[in-house]
């Protein structure tokens, strides 16, 4: 099953079970069914639970927050992740603060879903990975779907189990990817509510920490390093991007003592820096490496976009740097 179907079917299931789950967004009605088709069929099956809205990103997130305060569990779709700059006040100054700032047992269970990422040639304002600007916001949980963990199940955790606002990131390329079947890879799941997956068997030589659709290029890089360099990689697939659960990351890095962090967002001031800071007390065999996008807007032309976004070769080179300078 593709990740898109996992998300869509999960929404169908949860909305059938619970009338308090509302789906809110722009162009989400059938027959269109949303810009990326995540909402396909929802308005037909649950006409009273789907609200198509004007193009007012900030205000539909505010609307969702108000509904959450009224006991609903709204899922708000922001059509492109690039537009989350428009909802910053609503998430940072409003929804995320309420429970703590008002000092009361107040649930604000709003989920803001959004497709992020490039590699589709959409250019500077429809290709970015902007969740970094929302990391470390107290009261806001940032999740990212992947192929490795049932994306529909992850979305259900966000909708049903997390009582504070959630920014739920779906990399655009993920929609068309096949979900990885259990057993397809050697994987261990952490016990956390939002699990981190540790992927890879045998005695690992290095750890790669990443999230989202970076898994696809990381898997290719790890396969290459295994075949060509006889190096074993362990991949830490994070699904809760913020706040970070360091435990499974530390377990891996304390074994390998070589670490590369991969993200699609701009590397400078990025998530990878925070991950490395959280591991900095572990004595490593080599300086930690970061792989991310260059500090440029994302160009529209395919050949130019490739030069800005991280590629498989960047991951391979980063891993090699952690072993070459300081031998295994």
């Amino acid at each position: 099953m593709r990740v898109l179907e996992q998300l869509n079917q999960s929404l169908h299931a949860v909305m059938a079970e619970r009338s308090d789950v509302l789906f809110i967004g722009e162009d989400v009605l059938d027959p269109y069914g949303g810009a990326f088709k995540v909402s396909k069929g929802l308005s037909t099956a649950f006409p009273d639970q789907v609200i198509t809205t004007p193009i007012s990103e900030a205000s539909i997130v505010g609307l969702g927050t108000g509904l959450a305060l009224q006991g609903y569990r709204p899922v708000v779709e922001i059509m492109f992740g690039d537009f989350i700059t428009l909802i910053a006040d609503q998430l940072v100054n409003q929804a995320a603060k309420m429970t703590w700032m008002y000092n009361r047992d107040l649930a604000v269970p709003i989920v803001v879903r959004t497709p992020m990422g490039g590699r589709r040639g959409y250019g500077p304002t429809h290709s970015q990975t902007l969740e970094k600007h929302f990391l470390g916001v107290p009261g806001l949980t940032v999740l990212a779907a992947s192929q490795a963990l049932d994306a529909g199940a992850l979305l259900r955790i966000a909708i049903e189990e997390i009582d504070t606002p959630v920014l739920f990131v779906e990399n655009k390329l993920l929609y068309a990817r096949q979900a990885i079947e259990p057993g397809e890879l050697d994987m261990r799941k952490s016990d956390a509510q939002v699990p981190t997956l540790t992927i890879g068997g045998g005695r690992p030589d290095f750890s790669i920490i990443t999230y989202g659709d970076n898994l696809s290029l990381v898997l290719e890089a790890v396969a290459y390093l295994h075949e060509e360099e006889e190096l074993n990689g362990e991949i830490l697939m994070v699904h809760q991007v913020s706040p970070i659960d360091f435990e499974p990351l530390r377990v891996s890095v304390m074994t390998t003592r070589r670490v590369v962090v991969v993200e699609e967002g701009i590397e400078a001031h990025g998530w990878g820096a925070e991950v490395i800071a959280g591991l900095s007390d572990i004595s490593l065999e080599a300086p930690p490496e970061r792989v991310g996008a260059r500090s440029l807007p994302i160009p529209a032309a395919r050949g130019l976009e490739e030069q800005v976004l991280p590629q498989k070769q960047d991951v391979i080179d980063a891993v090699i740097r952690t072993v070459d300078r300081y031998h295994v």
């Binding site: 007012s56 997130v61 505010g62 927050t65 108000g66 009224q70 006991g71």
Partner: peptide
């Protein structure tokens, strides 16, 4: 203001 709209809608 939009939060108030959400409360009213609820």
């Amino acid at each position: 203001i939009p939060i108030a709209c959400g409360m009213a809608m609820g």
